[in-house]
């Protein structure tokens, strides 16, 4: 899906921040949100990191942006918890309003329907039987993919020609893994794209590298 999370090359955000020293969690709630998200992600879905990323991508753009990084983590955790009916929709807001003194009724806890899923191994890397379809130096083209569901092919890399720079260890495929439809591990390549292939003849000169799953690629 074309989500708010897919930000590469989008414009209008203003200048990048000048780095400063900062603690990992500038405000206490950010640490709590971080820990809650990591722990609940594991509990509800067998540590399915891709499902969490897909939850981030499914957020309303306002919910993605308005409270910053750990705000979007919190919102994605809540989305995963309501998806698996561990929490009722509105439960978090109702509790927060009660905590600040409003007379709000809280929804009952529903019966959980968490996904029937267990990872075949820790982490995201797997082995596959078939040989890689591409080798270092091969010229490849990204397909014109517009799935409704999750993908790791950024919009700015659709229908672009590049050169395989490295063959990486196979990964579980987020397109299916994120929706609990199987790990389907695939070869992954680091592909190098000249900036002019991405942003036209007047682009700043540079080389862009990205990891691309085998099924996103075709021979040019």
């Amino acid at each position: 899906m074309d989500s708010i999370a897919d930000m590469g090359g989008t414009q209008g955000w203003g200048p990048a921040q000048v780095p400063t020293d900062e603690p990992p969690f500038p405000e206490p709630w950010e640490g709590r949100s971080f820990a809650l998200t990591v722990l609940t992600m594991g509990r509800i879905s067998g540590r399915n990191l891709d499902a969490f990323r897909h939850a981030l991508g499914r957020l309303h753009p306002v919910d993605y942006l308005v409270d910053g990084y750990y705000g979007r983590w919190l919102n994605a955790a809540e989305l995963m918890l309501t998806d698996s009916t561990i929490l009722a929709p509105g439960a978090v807001d109702a509790r927060a309003r009660r905590n600040r003194g409003e007379d709000v009724e809280e929804p009952a806890f529903p019966e959980p329907t968490r996904p029937d899923y267990r990872a075949s191994a820790p982490g995201s890397l797997r082995e596959v039987d078939q040989d890689p379809a591409f080798a270092v130096g091969d010229v490849v083209r990204t397909k014109d993919l517009h799935p409704e569901g999750p993908t790791k092919l950024p919009r700015y890399l659709r229908r672009r020609t590049g050169t395989v720079a490295a063959v990486r260890p196979p990964h579980v495929l987020p397109d299916t893994h994120a929706v609990f439809a199987g790990e389907n591990p695939q070869h992954v390549y680091t592909v190098a794209f000249p900036s002019t292939e991405l942003w036209g003849p007047d682009a700043e000169p540079f080389t862009l590298h990205a990891e691309v799953f085998e099924s996103y690629l075709e021979t040019r």
């Binding site: 709630w29 722990l39 919190l74 561990i86 978090v92 509790r95 927060a96 806890f109």
Partner: peptide
């Protein structure tokens, strides 16, 4: 809109009550 601090506190309470966290 509720602040993320309030919503984080609420989520933590709900998950602790369910003994999930």
């Amino acid at each position: 809109r509720l602040s993320p601090a309030l919503r984080t506190e609420a989520l933590e309470q709900l998950l602790v009550e369910r003994e999930l966290v």
